[in-house]
Amino acid sequence: MINPKEGATASTGLPWGDAERAAWRSRQRKHRSYASDVLQALDRVGEPFQVETYGEVVYGDERYPLRAVRSRQWRAGLPGVLITGGVHGYETSGVHGALRFLEERAQGLEAQVNWLVVPCVSPWAYERIHRWNSDAVDPNRSFREPSPSQEAAALMRLVQRYQSQFLAHIDLHETTDSDETEFRPALAARDGLAFEPGSIPDGFYLVDDAQHPQPAFQQAIIEAVERVTHIAPPDAKGELIGSPMVSRGVIHYDFKKLGLCAGITGARYTTTTEVYPDSPRATPEQCIQAQVAAVVAAIGFVVGHTPS
Rank of each mutant, 00 (worst) to 15 (best):
D254F: 09
G259T: 02
A236P: 00
R248C: 05
G249H: 08
G263D: 08
A262T: 07
C287N: 09
R248Y: 05
A236T: 15
R248Q: 11
I251M: 14
I288Y: 04
E285H: 09
P244V: 02
V295Y: 03
L240N: 09
A293Q: 05
C287Y: 01
T271N: 12
I251D: 12
P280E: 07
S279H: 08
A262V: 06
R248H: 09
S247N: 06
S247A: 12
L260G: 05
T265N: 05
T273Q: 14
L240G: 10
P244F: 00
I288N: 01
K237Q: 09
A297E: 05
A267Y: 12
C287G: 14
P280A: 03
G238W: 02
L258M: 13
V275K: 00
P284A: 12
G300F: 10
P280L: 12
S279F: 12
T265W: 10
Y276E: 10
G249P: 08
L260D: 04
V296S: 01
M245E: 08
I288V: 15
S279E: 13
L260H: 13
V246P: 02
I264E: 11
R281T: 09
K256E: 13
K257V: 10
C287L: 02
C261W: 00
G242V: 07
K237F: 03
G249D: 11
T272N: 15
D278L: 14
P234R: 00
M245R: 03
A290W: 03
K237A: 10
A294C: 08
G249N: 08
P284H: 10
K256N: 14
V250H: 06
T283I: 05
V250Q: 05
H252T: 01
L260I: 12
P234Y: 06
V292N: 02
G300S: 09
F255N: 07
G259L: 02
G300A: 03
V246L: 03
T272A: 12
V295H: 02
Q286E: 15
P234K: 01
D278R: 07
V246W: 01
A298Y: 13
V275R: 00
Y276L: 06
A298K: 05
R248G: 03
D278Y: 08
E274H: 13
L260P: 04
G249W: 11
I288P: 06
V275S: 14
A293W: 04
